[in-house]
Simulated assay, not measured.
Amino acid sequence: MSEAAGRRRVPVWLGIGAVVLAAVGGGGTWLFRDELFHPFGDARACAGSDLRLPHTIDAGGATLPADASDIHYLTRNGSVEVTFLSRGIPDYLHRAGILPEGKDLFDQKYGNKGETGEPEVALPDGLCGTSLRIPVWEYHVTAANGTRVDVTVERSTLFQTALRSPARAVVTFTS
């Protein structure tokens, strides 16, 4: 008996089936990559988050502005940090009670300049996303329910009485 006669031929359909399975598996992984590699399948959640936030995020007493984009969050041990980009931050600050209605955005009773000496302000440890550009303004408020809310937001480099448009903000609070 010859050596060639002792070998079995692999059916062609088996090879085609393996290629189809590999393509479907690879395509599915690519299609759902955000859901596979982010906590809870939420592309907004940063690595290390221990709690999923709802689709509409209530950050520090008010929902994020309707035009908020580039949203990222980190949740750990009851603390929440959210970063986002928006033109509606002044309205958000009023709705959240961080800045009383009618008060100047840069009233030193409610906030202060954030100075780092660097061209950017690093995000809190573990929060993913884009860093804030200086200058920034920081708000520190204790809500009526006792929750501490801290907001850091980018100020305009051209106008001393305005925020960037759009501005990036970081909101930190306990849930």
Rank of each mutant, 00 (worst) to 15 (best):
K103E: 08
G17C: 01
G48Q: 04
G27P: 05
D50I: 11
L53G: 02
A143T: 07
F106D: 08
F159G: 10
V170D: 04
G111A: 10
V121S: 11
V82K: 02
S86V: 01
V170K: 05
L127F: 07
F106Q: 12
F32M: 06
D107Y: 01
V10H: 10
L163I: 07
A122E: 12
A4S: 13
L64K: 02
S49N: 03
E154P: 09
T172G: 10
R164W: 05
R52C: 08
G117K: 02
E3T: 15
C46P: 14
L74G: 06
T147W: 05
W30M: 11
D91S: 08
L51N: 11
A143C: 05
V10F: 09
D125C: 03
L74I: 09
Y139I: 05
R76Y: 06
T116V: 13
A23H: 09
P39T: 07
P39H: 08
V151S: 07
S49P: 13
L53E: 09
T152S: 09
F173I: 15
R168G: 04
I134G: 08
D34H: 10
E138R: 15
G48R: 13
D104S: 05
Q160N: 14
R95L: 06
G114D: 15
P54L: 03
G41N: 07
K103L: 01
F40G: 15
H72Y: 02
V141F: 00
L163V: 10
T174G: 09
R148E: 13
A47S: 15
S79L: 11
A144F: 08
L132N: 11
Y92C: 12
G146Q: 02
L105C: 03
R164I: 01
P135C: 14
P124C: 01
S175D: 15
D67N: 02
F40D: 14
A62R: 03
I89Y: 01
S2Q: 13
Q108P: 12
E115R: 14
A122I: 06
V153C: 08
L36G: 08
R87P: 06
E115Q: 14
P135V: 09
P90Y: 05
W13I: 06
I98W: 00
V82W: 00
H55R: 14
N145P: 10
V121Y: 10
G146T: 00
A18Q: 06
V136E: 11
T157M: 15
V121M: 11
D125E: 12
R164K: 09
F40W: 15
A144K: 04
G15A: 07
R33G: 09
R87V: 02
L123T: 05
P54H: 03
V19P: 15
G48I: 07
V141Q: 10
G126W: 07
A47M: 13
I71A: 00
A22E: 11
F32K: 11
A23M: 12
A45P: 08
S79A: 05
A162H: 06
E138V: 13
P166L: 04
G17K: 03
T56S: 07
E101W: 06
H55W: 04
D70V: 01
P119Q: 11
R148T: 08
W137S: 14
V149E: 12
P90D: 00
L21H: 03
D150G: 06
V151D: 03
W30L: 12
E138Y: 13
T56C: 07
P119I: 03
